[in-house]
Design a binder for these strands. Structure first.
Lengths: 239, 239
DNA sequence: CGCCCTACTTGAACGCGTTCAAAGTTGTGC
DNA sequence: GCACAACTTTGAACGCGTTCAAGTAGGGCG
């Protein structure tokens, strides 16, 4: 774990906050790094806040000064993972203009990136499932990571040579992201060696999606497509 | 099968114990009833094991004699809910032979039954999301409730006049159950008044499913259907 | 320099889910 | 009746996440 924060803390001119003390930010990073390391080494449930504090050389209360709860520490994991996913998707997005290739590449890259955390991800996944939790992929707190992820699928669509119905094209990135959440859900439950069932799911589903997307321009299917898009729209309304 | 887990599990087919002592079963029911009542009144997280014990007039430890954990109390909720769902589906299943009507009726009945528990269901949903949890809808412990639920959707299919591709017909109950899990997932996250977005989702999705199922018999779509069924099969393999 | 203000830090304490050794209760065989 | 074993019940105690009143420190201003 390389300390990425030094550069930021050394500069004496921070933009938004009063640039007076960067000491706190150092402690914050220290606690976060320590926590993520222990999560990886021992698992989430087995890592106590007391252990994190002790290992980081601070008091328990100090961790709560920087993080609202133990769960909030995972948000850092999310953010880093999202960045890794984009990086790992680079080759696939640069290598082909074929929609199916691009989608398959990004999905497999996502699984690659998450693979080392399979067992540990499963245990903290339960936190993410609670709708009111800030860790939920649908929560306001997760929206930066979510938007970044949707952006990744926007790149899949926009960089592809596929001819797509314009109305569908608009919705497709978010729909693909939703599908990706489904894949992650499947992956979390996947106990097969190397999660190969998830790989098969991706390889099998991508051609189907590809064909479905291509069919979206057929005039015969226009009413059906419209109906689906209308359903999505009507379901999205309200709050 | 190997029912060695706790002394608390149903002793229905165990050979050894003399069936004389049913006194424990009374206490077990008392604790369960009290717990579910308090969950409904105060919510899951806000109901403490101490409060359940006090309200039931027993010691905390006694609750743990019959239930491995606070989460295990929810299994009772599951079972009852499943029975209620079937009962509430009666009219819809008796009233029409139209596939869409039957499916819509069963789905709405399921939401009706769960509605009183919406806020509390959301908090216990996080337990269900953990793959290793016995509360997971895919777990071995949940298989009785799961099988019963799949059976409900089998009734939807078998009692309907819809003409369905025979291969699809075989898989359809389980697929509909999976879809039902998706609806529940959506419902848990649905914060609109009376969860009306979930109602709209059902009303919008049912005709689409109905049409899709009807199309399954078209010869042109046979290869596509085969491909989908093959994907399901290939993903199901392994463990 | 010295004082203040505020960002930061502390650790005891709280209530929680859970455990467990001990005690109580009850049916059965002698 | 008695003793024994199995079943049931108890509540103090443990370790956890979390809170909070109290303390510390270091830059800015007089």
């Amino acid at each position: 774990m390389t300390n990425v924060t030094t550069a930021a803390t050394e500069s004496g001119d921070e933009p938004t906050p009063p640039a007076r003390r960067a000491r706190g930010e150092q402690t914050r990073q220290l606690i976060l790094e320590t926590a993520l390391r222990l999560f990886r080494e021992r698992g989430y449930a087995e890592t106590t806040m007391r252990a994190i504090a002790k290992e980081a050389g601070v008091a328990v209360g100090n961790a709560y000064y920087y993080f609202d709860s133990k769960e909030h520490l995972i948000q850092g994991f999310y953010d880093r993972n999202q960045a890794d996913h984009r990086a790992a998707s680079g080759p696939a997005l640069a290598g082909s203009a074929d929609f199916a290739d691009r989608l398959r590449g990004v999905l497999h890259a996502g699984i690659d990136v998450n693979a080392p955390y399979h067992s540990f991800a499963a245990t903290f996944f339960k936190s993410a499932a609670e709708p009111s939790s800030p860790l939920s992929p649908f929560s306001r707190e997760s929206s930066p990571a979510r938007d970044a992820s949707i952006g990744l699928f926007r790149d899949v669509v926009e960089g592809s040579s596929a001819k797509i119905d314009p109305e569908l094209r608009k919705e497709l990135p978010e729909l693909l992201w939703l599908g990706w959440m489904g894949v992650i859900l499947f992956w979390v439950y996947d106990k097969s060696p190397d999660q190969r069932r998830t790989r098969r799911l991706i390889d099998g589903a991508v051609p189907l999606i590809d064909r479905l997307v291509a069919l979206s321009r057929l005039r015969v299917l226009r009413p059906a497509l419209r109906q689906i898009l209308a359903l999505i729209e009507s379901v999205r309304r309200d709050d």
